[in-house]
């Protein structure tokens, strides 16, 4: 057997991203088993991992993890390219945009809880936007906005606290960033 001539060197960052993404995908899949009263309102447990990666390794890796999660979790759940996939993708993109700005907030005053709540608001804005433009082209969808906003505050706070807890209880980062 001839050896492949193309080499894809795997960096430490690649391994790290893959591990975090795997954890995030597992959480997303587990979460899909929780019955929910309203479509669109869910805890978004996979985002805990995004927050941890953002705090430890920066925005670029957090974006990788979040997007890998959206694609892989939808494949696992059989939602790939279904409406739910596009809702999650637009939500993830907008919340990553929000996080890109939120990460520059002073660390002393704003922790993962702030990041989480802001990202959760970004998430539901992205979903509402796609839903309004494409899935339910009627203003009736805005009737649900207060419910989504409340869910964003509650789940955002809880996810942020969990992320902060994980950050405080995980060993200090060993591998130098590369």
């Amino acid at each position: 057997m001839t050896r492949s001539t193309t080499e894809l060197p795997v960096t430490n960052a690649d391994v790290r991203i893959a591990r975090y993404a795997a954890a995030a995908i597992a959480l997303s899949v587990a979460e899909a088993a929780i019955p929910l009263p309203l479509p669109g309102v869910k805890p978004g447990l996979g985002n805990i991992i995004t927050l941890v990666v953002l705090a430890r390794w920066g925005w670029r890796e957090a974006a990788w993890v979040a997007l890998l999660r959206v694609f892989a979790a939808s494949l696992v759940l059989g939602q790939f390219l279904a409406p739910g996939f596009f809702l999650s993708l637009s939500g993830a993109l907008i919340s990553l945009g929000v996080l890109a700005l939120a990460q520059h907030l002073p660390k002393r005053w704003f922790g993962p809880v702030s990041h989480s709540v802001l990202a959760a608001f970004g998430h539901f804005s992205g979903q509402i936007l796609i839903a309004r433009l494409w899935l339910v082209p009627h203003d009736g969808i805005f009737y649900l906005v207060p419910v989504f906003a409340l869910a964003a505050v509650v789940f955002g706070t809880v996810n942020g606290l969990v992320a902060d807890y994980l950050l405080r209880h995980s060993p200090p980062r060993a591998t130098p960033s590369d």
Partner: peptide, 8 residues
Amino acid sequence: RAGFRPGD
């Protein structure tokens, strides 16, 4: 509670 910072 330690997870909350003033800005949060």
